[in-house]
Amino acid sequence: MTDQDVPTSQEAVTGTISDEVVIDITSMNKWFGDFHVLKDINLTVYRGERIVICGPSGSGKSTMIRCINRLEKHQRGKVEVDGIELTDNIKKMDQVRREVGMVFQHFNLFPHLTVLENCTLAPIWVRRMPRADAEETAMRYLERVKIPEQASKFPGQLSGGQQQRVAIARSLCMEPRVMLFDEPTSALDPEMIKEVLEVMVDLAESGMTMLCVTHEMGFARQVANRVIFMDEGQIVEQAPPTEFFRNPKSDRTKLFLSQILHSEA
């Protein structure tokens, strides 16, 4: 299996990566009841990195990135975001969540609010931004995800791809320092995947630090500076994309790649 299996037409994103640590996870473990879902995770993310996380379903990818904004609590080890350690301290937790944006598989837009209100809610109520400023920021990001004309609609009136782009804009309105994506295109029809990926590529080009759980290997090749492979709650392998796809080291990675690249072709 070589890189030629999936042609990459787009130019690779080459952002600058600083040596400032944004996320530092050391020996993190987590259990759901008796089930050891994350086993001794170590991960350091530097500012400007674009990390793609892949692995079989149930391997703990979602759980891992949800520990970064404490949607899940880890039970052992240490998670630091921007130097703030995540503990039961609610103040610090909210502080971290303000700086970490998250995009979900099922968008999770607020259906009772318009697109614009979805985008201004957190800036107004969390950042205490004046309404007019918040709306201006929101329109700027809605333009960036290419749907400013939908601002006054409700999420229920938009297509899946449009909803996901609104969800990205909603996160960006908080001007986060890190963005987490949990399979952002998995719930979308094929023709809508592209429009969402384009927005994400654009975001990567702007220098955003991104952690992205996805099975879009084309996206990984184009955008990632590091690909992480997880299996059974462990980080099995991590490498730059060219090396990861051309020369996977572990058998589990090879098996996974053969399955996923086969089905993609």
Binding site: N69, L71, I90, D94, Q95, R97, R98, V100, G101, M102, F104, H106, N108, L109, F110, P111, H112, L121, A122, W125, V126, A167, R170, S171, M174
Partner: peptide, 27 residues
């Protein structure tokens, strides 16, 4: 209310009472 609504509100940094007042209770 789907769990995703709570998660989205949390991930934006909204604290409990604001989440309830602005996101959960209206729906």
């Amino acid at each position: 209310m789907p769990a995703g609504q709570y998660e989205a509100a949390k991930s934006l940094g909204l604290p409990y009472w604001k989440t309830m007042r602005l996101v959960i209770l209206p729906q």
